[in-house]
Design a binder for these strands. Sequence first.
RNA 1: GGCCCCUUCGUCUAGCGGUCCAGGACGCCGGCCUCUCACGCCGGAAACACGGGUUCGAGUCCCGUAGGGGUCACCA
Length: 462
Amino acid sequence: MTVVTRFAPSPTGLLHIGGARTALFNWLFARRHGGRFLLRIEDTDRRRSTEEAVAAILDGLAWLGLDPDEPPAYQFQRRERHAEVAWAMLETGAAYRCFAGPEELQAMREAAAARGERFRYNGLWRDRDPAEAPEGAPFAVRLKAPRGGETIIRDLVQGEVRVANAELDDMVLLRADGTPTYMLSVVVDDHDMGVTHVIRGDDHLNNAFRQAQVFEAMGWPLPAFAHIPLIHGPDGAKLSKRHGALGVDAYREMGLLPEAVRNYLLRLGWSHGDAEIVSTEEAVAWFGLEAVGRSPARFDREKLESVNAHYLRAAGEDRLLALLEPFLAPPPDEAGRARLRAGLGGLLPRAKTLVELAEAGAFYTAARPLEPDARAARLLADEAARALLTRYAAALEGAEWTEAALEAGTRAFAEAEGLGLGRVAQPVRAALTGRAASPGLFEVLAALGREEALGRLRDAAL
RNA sequence: GGCCCCUUCGUCUAGCGGUCCAGGACGCCGGCCUCUCACGCCGGAAACACGGGUUCGAGUCCCGUAGGGGUCACCA
């Protein structure tokens, strides 16, 4: 049997980090078993589903490299088929017509609340003759769920979970307007799409019982379920809007790499011994549901960024420069780009995100004359320092422009001036970068190139 | 509130009855390196929620308590 997994988001908002992880686990599980990973857009809520949300989901998955193996299925387009199944269940007696209207249901709800009980549909029409209903009255189709016993889910993550059938009521399959409900649609689609493993958020665990009843009623084989714990915010509650807009696109804008987000997400709730940095190949080879934990994990941005720092350093010059481009403002000229490339190696250990990298390297792409920041300006305000820069520039005039030669030359200069290297380096740094902190002075000098470096020194000199 | 799930350092986690005075990672603190800031390296503080069992022996198994979370629509 070939494994088929699916990611089934409803397009009502962003592709958030929890959804992304669910998609990742489905994708990995399918890859691990040489199966297929499908995408189903659950857009049956016409009021809340939007085109933009669909696009955001598709974009987000593509960015993360979690492309489905087939074009996405749209649930709304399959509503006829869903309804057919409901009618078939009516036919076999697995479902029945319920003529209780919204007001009636509301009254029952209130009555239950008044008694301090939880409302469960009382099966009023379950055994009643439909002929008793007013002529032409609208009706919903409800599942004739088992009354006694219990429904058991053998969940690949949660273990065996059971609930008394008395806790479940006869859910609506088809609304009075003839449209199928989510519970019905999901089951029919999972069956028709040949889904073998339903891997989804823990918040669906309760749904699994009801869905199992529908599978049962139709005589369809039950897929394997795996309910993975949700990702919580730093406060321990389910990740939501109030924790900040957390669409995948936001992570891209924060300057994170897709492979870093994937690695971080993978380690949230799943582990393989002490492995922290796990390549996609390793993840595919190692991933298994048995290693997924059962307790929810909190989202930790600092750890994400540290993982990102790792992948930033591993990304390679050309790709990095290309990724950096959108973060460069204003767009640099060719010479600026060349300086940035030359200095990239020294910038990397100083940045965890593309945003930080762009910021750290801004002095390379900046055009003369530089605008020193407050601390650099203070270093350059000193007249003796500026006079020193004049002499230093002169000393470098004929120097061989390599990092080693520049270091030797600078040390010799400092000694001749009777100064420690630090006394020379700081004003020079301020002149070259406009800052008081930067990558090593000699690599900055080398990356800037003779002309630009001397120019910047003279701009700041007396 | 009913039902369901969860509980090892601040956070992510290793641990699948003895090798655990509990290991790794992020973060934090200190030191080294050093032209600044980082990186790196070295060191440190930091956890088995609580109470009962079972067992020669429990972080690991069972029960209870407490705490946290999820879910209870003709929404998905």
